[in-house]
Write a protein that binds this DNA or RNA. Structure first.
Lengths: 129, 129, 129, 129
DNA sequence: GTGGTCTAGACCACA
DNA sequence: GTGGTCTAGACCACT
């Protein structure tokens, strides 16, 4: 189930992107599954159709989903990660910032790694892969 | 040395905040050290003085630095982390997003933890903590 | 053999048009040949019959094919090209855009002409024109 | 000078993208140049700011331009083409379709190559590279 | 029905 | 000043 928080500072369309990606990762959505239509999801989330559309377009650009004209949007059958240097660098930088933030909150290395383990457990817990 | 990338999508003032915090963490700046003046730093980074000012104000709000009227800005002598629940939750959420992103780039759990180890090594290499 | 890619951004009916034209050009379909029925082709391609119908209607409008009532659809016996200014201009414009795109991909003039030569070879390989 | 035709079937935002790319190619815009602001260009072209914004965002995604937050949009200093297989294939396909179209208009190989030569002359005529 | 494009107009963050 | 996000509502092409 996709959920967004309109009060969050992260844009709604980004939240949708994250939700879809997470759902796929958790196995709640599997390759070939049909996503809710732009109109339907926008009604569910009480957001503008354009906002959902923007999220779907970005997901398609990343090859996470595919849209079949006039037929709807589907989870890609053939997604395969490409270790792009640029993306990895951005991720490393974000991670570096989190490490720094964590320290200023009072969270050290072991505790941080513990949190990550927890996150992976949450993701991996619900499906068989 | 503080550095910013005007092309990045993260606001410059946030980059400055991160840079200062990282410098302190690395031991390049120690409690009591004087920071460059707003005017000076803005000239070095070729950014608007208001941008530097905004960063300094936020750092002061977080008690990372202190401004002594007419005498300049200094790294706080007495920073001590408070494990605020809100901040921790935000951090966990950011971390969750990074985990998801990492997966879509093709980076798994062990590799991610490896990257974190590296980051801690980079930070910890130059001081005693 | 006619083939379409539902994921492509070019409409399926246009893909069908292109495929038919290419087949004729390659000599795989010759004037007088019978095309598969709308129903048959739609089943083969797994697309909506309306989509095939739309493609056939456009091909007929362009006089590339002819429909004989109750007897099926055939490749025209008497197609002869007319150098319409409008069509030529559209084509030149498309070509200009391709030249620009090619440059941004890193493909220069000679390489582009080389690709065109290849395309003509592929087409011309199987018939006498 | 950027120009669009609202009656064209190609989306306005794509026309803007093409125009900017062509302008750079012709040397009318050089790396480092500031592009008109979203609002300004939208006023000039009499289109909605969102439409211009969409074009600029796509151009930035392609690294043709860069936006500096709060300061405007600039032609990239460091664009360098990457011969991406996917993009090359798309281009080849478009080219193949044009070749077929050309044939049905009555334009053959030599004539087509002649048109391409003309296009390159138009582009290359106004700058020194 | 589906998604894609566009407009008009608003609000916000950043510099 | 700049661009980024979002809404409301319209129109169109494709299936």
């Amino acid at each position: 189930m996709i959920n967004v928080d309109p009060r969050s500072s992260t844009p709604i369309y980004e939240q949708i992107i994250n939700e879809v990606k997470t759902s796929i990762l958790k196995g709640m959505l599997v390759p070939g599954d049909k996503l809710p239509s732009v109109r339907q999801l926008s009604k569910n989330l009480i957001v503008n159709p354009n906002t959902v559309s923007k999220a779907y377009m970005e997901l398609e650009r990343q090859k996470v989903i595919q849209t079949l004209k006039g037929r709807g949007t589907y989870v890609s059958m053939d997604y395969n990660p490409t270790k792009e240097a640029t993306k990895i660098n951005i991720m490393k930088n974000n991670l570096k910032n989190i490490v720094v933030e964590a320290h200023y909150i009072g969270i050290g290395k072991q505790e941080l790694i513990g949190i990550i383990e927890t996150i992976y457990n949450e993701i991996g817990g619900s499906h068989s892969c």
